[in-house]
Design a protein around this nucleic acid. Sequence first.
DNA 1: GGTGGCTGCAAGTAAGTACTTGCATTGGGG
DNA 2: CCCCAATGCAAGTACTTACTTGCAGCCACC
Lengths: 203, 203
Amino acid sequence: MLHEIQPRSPEETRNRILVATRAIFAKKGRRGTTTREIAESAGVNEATLFRHFGSKDAIIDAAVERFCATGELQELAAGLSGNLEADLRRLANALVERMEQVQDLIIMSLVEQEPHSAVSSAAWRAPGAIRHIVGDYMAKRVESGDLQGDPLLLARFFMGMIFADVIGRKKLPVTDYNKDDLITFQIDVFLNGVRKNKVHGNA
Amino acid sequence: MLHEIQPRSPEETRNRILVATRAIFAKKGRRGTTTREIAESAGVNEATLFRHFGSKDAIIDAAVERFCATGELQELAAGLSGNLEADLRRLANALVERMEQVQDLIIMSLVEQEPHSAVSSAAWRAPGAIRHIVGDYMAKRVESGDLQGDPLLLARFFMGMIFADVIGRKKLPVTDYNKDDLITFQIDVFLNGVRKNKVHGNA
DNA sequence: GGTGGCTGCAAGTAAGTACTTGCATTGGGG
DNA sequence: CCCCAATGCAAGTACTTACTTGCAGCCACC
């Protein structure tokens, strides 16, 4: 009989499973993610899931690990050297873009609290590294006299501001303003708040 | 035979169920909350749950509704009239306290996305109302010339700042600083960033 | 041309879950 | 004193879920 098998490489199969799992897990959480739905969405038989990963939890962990790669911020931070405002804007844009890409996973990681899950550690490894990068930049600017305060707190504040903005746009939306307006406003306040030699805003 | 029944009023039974449900739901989410565990935790037979509420979803909705009461910020805002910094500090403290009390429900509401659930609307009704209160205060201060900018954006920024702080303390903890230090820092930055007639910080 | 790895398929198992039902027990209010 | 509402208890139903198993077809590679 026709078995309708489109032969795929094992790596492609594996990847299809991880992509499908990430989407479902981000929407329904760990307990809400069923192996049946993963299999359907990936266009793969359910038994294949277990042959590849062994258990449902292993699939989810692998998917989160797969989509929480931490690169691409490092080189951005290294390339910064313009004026303070331009740098912060580039940083903010990069952070917003990244947080929007993985915001579903970030939110899920807020919920996961069992130590067994690799989600918490995997999902928060990236933010930790990013805070370090941002903190280093702030430290340089404090040292050069552009900013004041503890670089760690500055980085924390800056990232928290972006985080709240991304989440807020999703849950408590603001009409009358678009995304860029909001980011611009936040950066202005931050700059005005932490800059050492301030210029008065538009009176 | 001894049936070990400690007779309770129906209202007390109902309340025990809601308290237990709130705790379990906050930890495990909707799907992770089982009627069996609710019954055990409430010290009540499982059948009693359904006799009172009819369905598991109804129990959870009632519990969220029960613990998302929105009062007690209104009168606080009405009583504010001191100087700007003191007012913002009182506002911030009240917001922090409230967010800490219901942060588990807030996080869960970030995850809930099915329209059937009353959780999203119930959990975000309070923040919406609070933002309105804070926005009114900001508007008064803008009008009186103490602050500059759109009151709505100011309120959004202020609340997002607190929100990120509470979440951040939980997930990306900062050693070297305690809770009050962090809040003080945030208010300072905010004030410096949005005040119209600024005073230079400690050089 | 065969062989072995990857896969689909169908059926099944064991456990958990929401929810129901019938009955016994209790305490309080008439 | 007695009746009734509220509850406990035990058993059961129908469904879902994670995970397994045995078999058969396909493809690549030797």
